[in-house]
Design a protein around this nucleic acid. Structure first.
Lengths: 224, 224
DNA sequence: ACTTGTATACTTGCATACTAGTTTACTTTA
DNA sequence: TAAAGTAAACTAGTATGCAAGTATACAAGT
């Protein structure tokens, strides 16, 4: 298991949760693999308690399955749950983005513009990590503008299924079109055209998903 | 605290979670009230561990706030979170209901019809509890038909904020129009008219919410 | 009266101990 | 050889103990 350092601020429980989640998404903890609280606790140099609590939380999203007195199973990739994660994000974020076009203040629009500018900048210097970070921030801003941070949290939580699934594709980077779509969404928000912002977003989110689905054939052992 | 009996199947943790949640929704544990793990553990005749884990889970939805070394605060009613819960349910369920109109099998439609028939039956005999149960089942069936059970779980989890808020209104029972709206949704599904099913549902869910909002003035001490 | 110091009794986070159930490996028995 | 029995080594659920931080009550000093 890849063990990144503990952030001083986070509790042992949050630390365990973060590390386990990262390892599941990166497929370091493979679908179908059995894990035990004690093993993870040893690796992270913690007691079972915070690990136990982290696993409880992961089980709620069905990314692991706790089998009492036997251990915890890293769930196989379940396309129903992947579909649900994509559906939930697309549905909520479409509505949120539409609202954002009505609610965005001048300051919000400036921040979005700044974000898009930075995306263009880092694209020219080829910094993909930074672009992905800005991408996430761009979408998160829609939730912030419309006071929907708890929805964002729920969407993000559920999205672990899609994050893991997408990992199979490695980094299919159509960076250029992604940035252009962000620019178009911002344009629609500037014009207070919620319907248009929504439509671009939906295309933006669903575009690649259809293609991705056939990855399943390459890693059949990972799937349910 | 109202302490319903422990169901044989549920773990101590789930038992604690259920009882605490029920007490928060029923306003038996009042907004702004401080609770301690030990007190609840004593009342439920459990150790702190399962109570601690239940509180962790409730804190994730922000219905309580854990203040380390101080205790846990039953959150004041936060209208942003209530709005988010309503928004999330309406948005997801509209999309789900629209899909259900395409995906429902003959058997699904029969089950929905049976449900509506029972609602009419229990309406004539004045059994409000039974109607509420059937109401929940009717909506849940949309998620089942479209394979969106995890979305249902997330929506239900978040809806605790609205459930508690609605408790202030006592039972404002416009039962008759509710049942009629269910009938109309089913009709639209039979005709495979997803758009119409969606529109009726959105009206159905949002109808009363606007009126409810002024309850705030009656219980200012419960609000953030 | 008011501040300051201090002892005490709380609180949760986490570690550890115990319980009960499952799996595994090995031994016994036919 | 194969089945049945058994002990040991695991598992998670839960109880308990300890550490460290916070609130409270009260006394001492100004």
């Amino acid at each position: 298991m890849i063990n990144t350092e503990k952030d001083g601020k986070e509790s042992n429980r949050d630390y365990a949760l973060r590390v386990i989640r990262e390892n599941i998404i990166k497929l370091e903890l493979k679908p179908g693999f059995m894990i035990s609280e004690q093993d993870i606790a040893d690796e992270l140099k913690l007691s079972r308690t915070p690990v136990h609590e982290a696993l409880q939380e992961l089980a709620r999203t069905k990314i692991i399955e706790i089998l009492p007195q036997r251990g915890s199973l890293v769930s196989h990739i379940n396309m129903t749950l992947v579909d649900e994660a994509v559906f939930m994000r697309a549905t909520i974020e479409a509505a949120v983005t539409e609202q954002a076009a009505q609610m965005a203040t001048e300051k919000d629009i400036q921040e979005l513009q700044e974000n898009v500018n930075l995306q263009i900048f880092y694209h020219s210097s080829g910094n993909l990590d930074k672009i992905m970070e800005l991408d996430n921030q761009f979408h998160e801003m829609m939730y912030r503008i419309t006071n929907k941070m708890q929805c964002h949290f729920m969407v993000k939580t559920m999205n672990i299924h899609y994050d893991r699934f997408r990992e199979l594709r490695m980094h299919s980077s159509a960076t250029e079109s992604v940035i252009e779509e962000h620019r178009l969404i911002l344009e629609a928000i500037k014009n207070k055209d919620g319907e248009k912002a929504k439509q671009i977003l939906l295309g933006h989110l669903n575009k690649h998903y259809a293609d991705e689905k056939d990855v399943r054939k390459k890693y059949p052992e990972y799937f349910a």
